[in-house]
Every structure is written in structure tokens, then in C-alpha cells.
Amino acid sequence: MWESIQTILNFKNPVAYAIPFFALFIGAEVYLNYRERSDNYQLKDSAASISMGIGSVVIDILTKSAAFFLFNFIYVNYGLFNEALSYTLLGWVLLFFLDDFTFYWHHRFSHQVRLLWAAHVNHHSSQHYNLSTALRQSWSELFYKYLWFLWLPFLGFPPLMILTQISISLIYQFWIHTKHINRFPAWFEFIFNTPSHHRVHHAKNIIYLDRNHAGILIIWDRMFGTFMEEDPNEPVIYGITTNINTYNPLKIASHEFINLGKDIYKAPTFVDKLKYIFLPPGWSHDGSTMTADEMRADWEQQQKKNTP
């Protein structure tokens, strides 16, 4: 037990080393926006995002520690291929792909299950898209996020190896929150998640909703039918379908849980209450609101009607 505590205390979290670089790049982007007379940065909005980021770091110390103990118990007692995967080249290569695959499905379900969306939506709540937006991390998501990765210690990946790769993925996703990078060469855009792909993910345009859930590799979206190319004829509008217009971190973190609670309360049957929790955001028992897929289908139908 004490050995495990010492191990987690000595864990060199890559995110901690990346924070000064986050600050440096945000400062550089602020300067570029000033030079371009752009309104992409708004002080209150960026302050709210940074506050969310600080809160997530504090909470993550606790949840990551709990995840370590759970991962370690599984790894020590039930790991299948510990010797082959523990800090070997093969292990790191496999973990890179398996971690990213796991993130894709965790992220995708966070957009398709209302309860999970309530935890994730704050990351999409800014109407600006810049590097400070990357720091607008969920607080509540951290209490269950690591459960998605439980299958990795069963395979034989050690806990610190898993937590390190999760941190590397988080660091990668910082730099793609920018408008200042247009496109990379086609081969790079085909394989990796890029600013162009992630701008689509943060869009509230109906055609772009719930697309490009990738962490590092965009290949998962291409494989599982959720990929969408950024269209120069469809400029991205950032935010969520019903913007919350607040800079209060507590409201940003909790507003969708409050909305979900209201919907559950007004649902006429127990089954409807469960549907509000587990069906996609936008589902309603009386059909008064629409899910992203329903909005997209309706939009496409209107497009066909308006096309000669």
C-alpha cells in the first residue's frame, strides 16, 4: 500500500511540464490576435476557460490517484501480458493505438448519451475558438473518465504507463484549438487530428454536429463514420446549439446537469425519465426538441427542397 502511494506521488505527470508551454503559446496567440485586430480572444471568456482548467487539475489529482490504485490492483492480480507489455517498445506502440481508440469511444459517447454530455458540454460552451478554449476542461467528467481505460491493465499495461499515455493525448489536443493553422499536407490531415478537423468538432453548425471525435488519430472517425471535412463554404460557428452566455465556472460546469434534472422531473413516465438520461441530447418525450441526427436529417431535407 505504502509503495503504491510513493509511486503515485513520484509520478512525473507530463501535463505539469507542459503548462509553461501552454501559457507561452496562449500569449503568442493573444499577440497575433492583437496584431490582426481580431476579436477571437475575450478576456472574460478566456478567464473562465483557464479557471475551468485549474479546477480540473486539482480534481484530477484525486481522481487520477484513485485510478492508479484501481489500475494497479487489476494489473498485479489479473494482468494477462505484463511481461511483454510493461515499458517495452511493443507495449508503448500498442498502448498509443489502444489508448487513442478508447478515447475516441469515450468522447463519442460523451456526445451521444445525455448524462455524459452534461459532464462534457462545458468544453464546447465557449463561443470563441483559441488555445485558451483547450483549457476549458470538464470537472465532473474526471470522476468516471478513467473507467473507460480499465481494460488496459487487464491486458497487462502498468498503471503509470497508461496514465502517461493519457496525459500525452491531452497535451496533443491542446494545439489543435486554434484558427491560426489552416491545413497541413493531405497525408497528415488523413491520419492525424488537426486544427481543421477539430474546428468542425467545436462547431454548432447543424451539418458539423457530433463529428470528429478523435484524440490524436482521425482514422477512427474515418473508420466509424463520424468524420466530416471542414468546408470553406460553411464557416464554423462556435458554441453549443443553445449558448449559456455565462462566464461563471460553477454555472459552466453545472448548467446541463440542471437542465437534465428539469427534464427528468417533467417526464411523465419512469421510462421517459431513463430516456432523458441515456438517449442523445435533444431527445424529448413530446418531440419538442431534436437530437443532432434529427436536426441534420431535417437540414438535409430542406437542402434538397431548395436545390433545383
Rank of each mutant, 00 (worst) to 15 (best):
W2V: 09
I8K: 03
L9Q: 10
K12Y: 12
V15Q: 02
Y17H: 12
F21G: 15
A23Q: 05
F25C: 14
N33P: 07
Y34S: 08
E36N: 14
E36G: 14
S38E: 07
S46N: 07
A47S: 15
A48N: 10
G55P: 13
D60P: 01
T63P: 07
A67N: 04
F68H: 04
F68N: 06
F71Y: 15
G79L: 03
L80I: 11
L80Y: 14
E83W: 14
A84E: 12
A84L: 13
L85F: 14
L89W: 13
G91F: 11
G91A: 09
L94H: 11
L95N: 09
F97S: 02
D100N: 10
D100F: 14
T102P: 10
F103H: 15
F103Y: 09
H111E: 02
A118N: 10
H124W: 03
H124C: 07
L131F: 02
S132K: 04
W139R: 05
W139D: 04
L142G: 02
K145H: 13
W148N: 09
L150N: 04
P153Y: 09
F154W: 14
L155K: 10
P158C: 07
L160C: 09
T164R: 05
I168C: 08
I176G: 01
T178L: 08
T178D: 09
F188L: 15
F188I: 04
H198P: 00
H202Q: 11
A203Y: 02
K204E: 07
N205Y: 00
I206Q: 01
I206H: 00
G215Y: 00
I216F: 03
D221H: 07
D221R: 05
R222T: 06
T226P: 11
T226I: 12
F227T: 07
P232E: 08
N233Q: 14
T242N: 12
T242Y: 04
N245S: 02
T246G: 05
Y247T: 03
P249K: 01
P249Y: 04
I252C: 01
F257I: 00
F257Q: 06
I258A: 13
G261N: 08
K262V: 02
D263F: 00
Y265L: 09
D272Q: 10
D272G: 02
K275F: 11
I277R: 04
L279I: 02
P281V: 01
S284V: 01
S284L: 05
T289Q: 11
T289C: 04
M290Y: 09
M290A: 03
M290D: 03
A297N: 15
